[in-house]
């Protein structure tokens, strides 16, 4: 009996016997599939790199790299311009941080003033070089 009924559906090709459950299941699967695709393949959008400035191991600034700005840290003058960062001036003798110049990835560290400036790449945190000895 059942077999016959099924064959009937195929023959007529219409939907009089679609149950509400089938329809709801279809909608649910549709939402899950499309949502799932966004979850898997999406979410990789680049929110823009951030400039993090830590003083004494405490984060003091978290700034977008694409907004030009000059930050006065008393001993250091940090400048963000054209998606790059540099220490514009420092009041120490060797001025190693100033000599490092503009960076667009990695970090600038001023040990005497205990300042760490990090460019955090939101999209790609795999640096070419993983560490430096020296």
């Amino acid at each position: 009996m059942i077999k016959k009924t099924n064959l009937d559906f195929l023959k007529f090709g219409l939907l009089p016997q679609i149950r509400i459950g089938d329809f709801l299941l279809f909608i649910l699967l549709l939402i899950l599939s499309i949502g799932g695709m966004f979850y898997v393949y999406g979410g990789e959008t680049n929110n823009g790199n951030r400039v993090i400035i830590e003083v004494n191991n405490i984060e003091q600034f978290n700034l977008p790299i694409d907004v030009d700005k000059v930050i006065d840290l008393r001993h250091l003058l940090v400048e963000i311009k054209d998606k790059k960062v540099r220490v514009k001036d420092a009041d120490c003798q060797n001025k190693l941080c100033v000599k490092q110049g503009w960076i667009d990835r990695g970090s600038i560290i001023c040990l005497p003033n205990r300042v760490v400036i990090i460019i955090k790449n939101i999209k790609n945190n795999h640096a070419v070089i993983d560490a430096i000895s020296g």
């Binding site: 559906f9 090709g13 939907l15 699967l29 899950l32 599939s33 695709m37 898997v40």
Partner: peptide, 22 residues
């Protein structure tokens, strides 16, 4: 219009997509 068979086929495809995603 949709019939039961095509709905079922679609459901199978969607389940496969879900599986691939997972």
């Amino acid at each position: 219009m949709l019939n039961i068979a095509s709905i079922k086929k679609l459901q199978i495809i969607l389940i496969l997509i879900l599986l691939i995603n997972s």
